[in-house]
């Protein structure tokens, strides 16, 4: 069990942020908050996806992205983006120990995804302890 637990009001706040993201960009069909060590915390998925497995994978991918950046003499990894023939998966850090992942269909605009993810992080950052 994850020790990172969000209060009921915190979870509601997250859901409202997720809803906003999905209404700003209807190509988004999944948003997930997980811990840096790979536990699923809160999510909103429009289709069935294995949240615990995704949570573990997102922590690996973000850690690798951050490590690769350092090896290539680059600083402050902002996002890890997986771009596929039919969609995007965007992962970024949220506070110190959390990860925000945004899953969208290919008709999303990558710039738009960046901006809604950034603003979601800002909102969540303020509200979550």
């Amino acid at each position: 069990m994850s020790q990172v637990r969000i209060s009921e009001s915190g979870a509601q706040f997250c859901q409202s942020v997720f809803d906003d993201m999905m209404s700003q960009c209807d190509a988004v069909y999944g948003v997930l908050i997980s811990t840096v060590d790979g536990h699923d915390v809160v999510r909103s998925f429009k289709q069935d996806m294995p949240a615990p497995k995704l949570a573990a994978m997102m922590s690996s991918v973000l850690a690798l992205g951050e490590t690769i950046a350092v090896e290539a003499d680059q600083q402050q990894c902002r996002y890890v983006i997986v771009e596929n023939s039919n969609g995007y998966i965007l992962t970024l850090r949220l506070k110190e120990k959390l990860v925000l992942s945004v899953i969208a269909r290919a008709n999303a605009n990558l710039g738009m995804l960046h901006s809604i993810s950034r603003s979601a992080v800002e909102k969540l950052d303020e509200k979550l302890r």
């Binding site: 994850s2 840096v36 536990h39 922590s59 850690a63 490590t67």
Partner: peptide, 23 residues
């Protein structure tokens, strides 16, 4: 060495503060 250790947020935190999440 290349490390991918991140903060532990579960019961493992009682034992160690960081754990490997990729390789």
């Amino acid at each position: 060495p290349v490390r991918t250790d991140t903060a532990t947020t579960d019961e493992l935190a009682d034992v160690k503060s960081e754990t490997t999440v990729a390789m």
